[in-house]
Simulated scan of single mutants.
Amino acid sequence: MSLKQKITDDMKAAMRTGDTRQRDTIRLLQAAIKQKEVDDRQELDDAAIIAVIEKMLKQRRDSIDQYEAAERRDLAAAEKEEVNILSVYMPKGLADEEIEALVAEAISAVDAKGMQDMGKVMAILKSNVAGRADMGKVSAIVKAKISG
C-alpha cells in the first residue's frame, strides 16, 4: 500500500471514530500534499510525501519551541499531538551507528579531503537518509569526520 493510500485510509478511520485532532491533522497533511502536486504538476511518490511530512514536522517543532518560550503550554501540547500523528508516516529512524557508517561510506565514495567536499558528501547522504535522520545531525557528523 502506498503512503498516500495509508494516509487516506487513516483519514477515513479518524472520521469514523470522531477523532477530530487526527482528522484535522491528516487533512492538513493531505492539503500540503495536494498543494505540492499542483505546484509540481505531478503526482508525488512516497519519497516526496515523506519530504512534505518532514517539512510539516519541522514547522511543528519550531512552533513548540516558540510556544514553550512564551509559556503557552496549551498550544505547545496541541502541536506535540500533531507531531505524534505525523510521525506515524515517517520511516523508521536510523541509529547513530548506522548514520556514522553511511557518512563514512559517502566520504570514501567522493574521496572527500576537506570542507570543500562537504556538499558532495551531503548530496549523497540526502538521498540515503531522507526522512530517517535529522539532516542537521548528519551535517554535524560529516563536519566532524571531514575536518578531523
Rank of each mutant, 00 (worst) to 15 (best):
E81V: 14
G119I: 08
D62T: 11
E71F: 13
V110L: 02
D117P: 04
D62C: 06
A47C: 00
M122W: 06
Q42W: 02
A70L: 10
A106C: 02
I124H: 02
E43L: 13
L75N: 10
D65Q: 11
A104E: 13
Q116T: 07
R61G: 01
D40P: 00
A51H: 06
K55I: 09
I107S: 04
I99D: 00
M90I: 07
S87K: 06
I124Y: 05
A104G: 08
S108H: 05
I64C: 05
V110H: 02
L75G: 05
V110F: 01
A109Y: 03
M56H: 10
G93S: 14
L125D: 01
M115F: 10
S108W: 01
A95N: 09
L125P: 00
A69M: 14
D96S: 12
R41H: 07
E98Q: 15
I124C: 01
M118H: 06
K36H: 13
D46V: 11
A70R: 05
K36E: 15
A106T: 01
D111S: 15
K36N: 13
G93L: 09
I99P: 00
L125K: 00
V83F: 10
D40F: 07
V88E: 12
S63R: 10
G119A: 12
A47Q: 11
A101N: 11
K92G: 04
D39V: 14
R72A: 15
I50K: 09
L75F: 09
L94P: 01
E82M: 10
N84A: 13
G114I: 08
A69P: 02
A123M: 15
G119K: 11
Q59F: 08
A104D: 14
A112Q: 03
S108Y: 00
E43F: 11
R73D: 12
E79K: 09
R61D: 05
E37C: 06
S63T: 12
E105V: 02
E98C: 08
K80R: 13
L57R: 07
K92Y: 01
A48P: 05
S108D: 14
K80F: 06
L94F: 07
I49E: 06
K92H: 07
A95L: 15
R41L: 09
R61Y: 08
L94C: 03
I124P: 00
L57Y: 02
L57T: 03
V88I: 15
R73I: 12
A112T: 05
S87H: 00
A104R: 11
V38A: 15
L75S: 10
E82I: 04
E68Q: 10
E54K: 11
D65E: 15
L125E: 00
E37V: 06
E105P: 00
A112E: 04
D96F: 04
R72G: 07
D40K: 05
E81R: 06
A76W: 01
Q42P: 04
K58G: 14
Y89I: 09
Q116V: 12
E37H: 09
R60W: 00
L94G: 01
A95H: 11
V121L: 09
M122T: 07
K120C: 03
R73G: 13
V88C: 04
A70S: 14
D40L: 15
E98M: 10
R73P: 04
S63F: 12
R60H: 09
I49F: 02
I53Q: 04
K120F: 08
Q116A: 15
I50D: 10
L75P: 02
D65A: 13
R41Q: 10
